[in-house]
Nucleic acid binder design. Structure first.
Lengths: 324, 324
DNA sequence: CTCAATTATACTCAACAAGAGCATAATGAG
DNA sequence: CTCATTATGCTCTTGTTGAGTATAATTGAG
């Protein structure tokens, strides 16, 4: 009955299409191997995330992304989730002057075929963000290099209120205030380091070279920022949704599960509380086997309960993150 | 030192651009007026969200969106946040065969100029989703119309495991199991109703007309789905981030704040607990004035504490949602 | 003026979640 | 055999959260 107005509105909305843009799909693909979180990269310098243009024969954005990742890395993707879409002002096509829209995704898998390839590879994500791994305590880079240089940057601000603002942001993001370290603030930390021109990416073009970049492997374009976004999302998400299981083999011990979580969070976990939480949530069930790969009593093997598959979109896996 | 490989990788990634697409920006703009959450629409049937193509002179996606909303509705936007990006398979330009990528945003403001306009207007979001308002108890549409028709849809499935799967999804999304109603599942509910072909949008093109659509105002294209996404995001977000304040006037009473939260959540809140939570989080401060607009003792007026502006990106506003 | 309805506000209480520590048993490495 | 390492059970404290009770301050209706 309201078809007429509906169609009129629709025509108004679709007429006068904007200029053409091209759409890029970028993937942050994560696996955890031997307690190390790793990211899938392409290029010999491991400085790029798998990516490629969205094409006509892609049925959807997701399937386009899968196609690109599989073409570039031979690696099939399981779970994927959208991260963020942005349009860089300076991203222009070679021939035509055309905006590029980048749509980034987070993907979770298990690492396979560890043989080295010239076209792609897996790299520990703490190579890119050495200040993010707090499993063995606060990394020395933080008090020795990052914090002094960030504070110097805050102090060199012109206006006094800007100085205060910078100081407060640094203190908050890097856990210098009473709240302590918050492992979720990966992106905020990277953006501060970028703003303070301490990462290599922020120095491009300006060859003044008097300030050496801080440790941490750089990437092309804004790929490192996208990686930071993916890590932040994952660190947030494992706390309220059982996505860790996408990274686990079909059967695993509770310690392996814990090590995976710790690898992602960059922080240690209270073992007893971790087990209490996992078991009381009925997320796993025993397979019946036990293994004794290490010392200590044999550990039971578990598998993810398929029953919760339907509900897992909302079920929560809360994690007891500790400071020790 | 690794400039060479970096540039090589970059060239490889940027060459061979994909086909051109056009990018659409779509806005879900929300305000709460007199305890009713409302959404900004265009078109006489109020069946479309403000939207327009991303153009060359837009500095960024966000500024393009702001430009479109202000052009179409004369309404300036405050807080905005990205919702989701998708590429519909059937969305094709009139002249060239071109994919359309839609980037949707959630915007929060206060409603101004309530005079009626032919080009745009504000509409209560529960007009579009009558089953989502549980402030006065479970709405009758739910047990009377929706649940029976959804169960019929589940039962008409072919395979028995598909039947079970549908039943479980319906029970979970509509709170028929022991977990009860979860106000965050707005999108899941809409998608189930769409899948069951109970909403008008799902019947387009197929003029079989033997099944009347359920109550709830439809929108063009997938705009209603996008609105559902925005509502879901907002309902989730008010629980852990103080975004409600974007919807409030500069000064307000705690009851007004509570009514706003209840309007968004579609659920009532335990007053004493609400106040305890708000005050212990130091989110507000007294202005010193009191007002007695209604009966009862005069209420103190509060304002949002500017001090928390910097931290609010992470501060939490937890809400005590009750069932009564 | 009086009463009823409505609101602000202060407390209490039980249930539970979460961080942290203690204790004990089982196992393999040296 | 001894010990480091791990699995596992239990306790204890603290804070959070849902829910109820109680009381005082107002205004509008009659």
């Amino acid at each position: 009955m309201q078809d007429k107005t509906t169609l009129a509105t629709k025509r108004a909305a679709t007429s006068n299409r904007g200029q053409a843009v091209s759409a890029d799909l970028i993937a942050v693909v994560i696996a955890v191997t031997n307690g190390e979180p790793r990211v899938l990269t392409i290029g010999q310098a491991a400085g790029a995330l798998p990516s490629g243009p969205f094409e006509l024969d892609h049925r959807s954005l997701q399937s386009g992304l899968r196609a690109w990742v599989e073409r570039q890395t031979n690696h099939p993707l399981g779970y994927i989730e959208q991260l963020y879409t942005f349009a860089d002002a300076d991203r222009i096509d070679d021939e035509h002057v055309r905006r590029v829209i980048s749509i980034s995704y987070l993907g979770l898998t298990r690492e396979e075929q560890p043989e080295r390839s010239p076209t792609h590879g897996w790299h520990g994500w703490y190579d890119y963000f050495p200040w993010e791994d707090h499993r063995a305590g606060v990394p020395p880079i933080l008090p020795d290099i990052l914090v002094p240089r960030l504070q110097a940057w805050a102090d060199e601000a012109g206006a006094p209120n800007m100085r205060g603002d910078r100081r407060q942001r640094v203190e908050f993001a890097f856990g210098l205030d009473d709240r302590g370290w918050n492992e979720e603030l990966v992106l905020q930390r990277y953006e501060l380091l970028y703003e303070a021109a301490l990462v290599a990416e922020a120095m491009r073009g300006q060859h003044n070279g008097h300030t050496p970049a801080i440790p941490g492997r750089p990437m092309i374009g804004d790929h490192r920022r996208i990686l930071a976004t993916g890590i932040a999302r994952l660190r947030t998400k494992i706390k309220y949704r059982p996505v860790v299981f996408e990274l686990m083999p079909p059967a695993f011990t509770l310690l392996q599960l814990q090590r995976t979580v710790e690898a992602l969070a960059g922080q240690l976990v209270h073992k007893q509380n971790f087990r209490r939480l996992i078991e009381q949530q009925d997320l796993v069930e025993e397979t019946g086997e036990t293994v004794s790969e290490t010392r200590g009593p044999p550990a039971k093997r578990f598998r993810f309960r398929q029953t919760v598959l339907a509900e897992r979109t909302v079920a929560g896996t809360k994690l007891p993150l500790s400071r020790a």
